[in-house]
Amino acid sequence: MSLEQIPVKKARPNDYTSNEHPVWCPGCGHFFILRALTKALAWLNISKQDIGLVSGIGCSSRLPAYLDVYGFHGIHGRALALASGLKLARPDLTVIAAGGDGDGYSIGGNHFIHACRRNMDITYIVMDNEVYGMTKGQPSPTTDPEWHSKLAPNGTGLSSFNPMGIALASGASFIARGFSGDPNGLTKILTEAIQHQGFSLVEIKSPCVTFRPEQKDWHKSMRLMNVTPFANPMEAAQAIYGSDGFDTGIYYQADSPVYRSEASSKKNGTASEQMDIIEKALLV
């Protein structure tokens, strides 16, 4: 094969990065998620101006500032609601929401459930480090019950939240777990999640080196990309609940009805002709 015949790749990961450098703690898992995301976007060759990246508040929610796309750094817990409005108003955009475990599963829990249920074509990236990092190390919904912290000196005693189980029960049509220390697998999952038609949850184990230094050893326990995707929720539930949380890959991918904008399909005539009809209906 001669070199001239080789297909040319248009976009490069660095094309998607902004001039702003990340200031996450050195060693933070989020760096590798950012990189994997730019690699996925480059591979899919999505135009930068056609991407809407929405986040809430927290360490992970700084993500939009580090990408040269249309970003929205909103308020704590509400990224999915904002992203849903954006996607419905602008179905042409690739809409991605991102945040952490506290943002998505605690303060934003209700939006998480209903975003799954709506199954709009949105990719939701949760950078889960099982701790509130930005407020200095409080237990989050995914923290294990025994973890000792200033706020819960003897541990919370509460079993941790199962986001993938909740997503499955609520109607998400793509559910995957990734590991930030697995750039290849993570990039693959993100690429598939973005391509998937419907709501995609990508739950990513992302170590917090500052408040959970023990998570640096996660890479020793991870079983990378050892999961087979199921289209049947019963089988997927078995796989999700059967895992100790260290298996990565796509657990569930189904072809479920997607909530879409019906704006273009119902239109008959121009908007101003329609307004005339609407106003005439008011007459006695």
Partner: peptide, 9 residues
Amino acid sequence: ANALMQAHY
């Protein structure tokens, strides 16, 4: 990435 995860500030 695996080497870099051993970093801290």
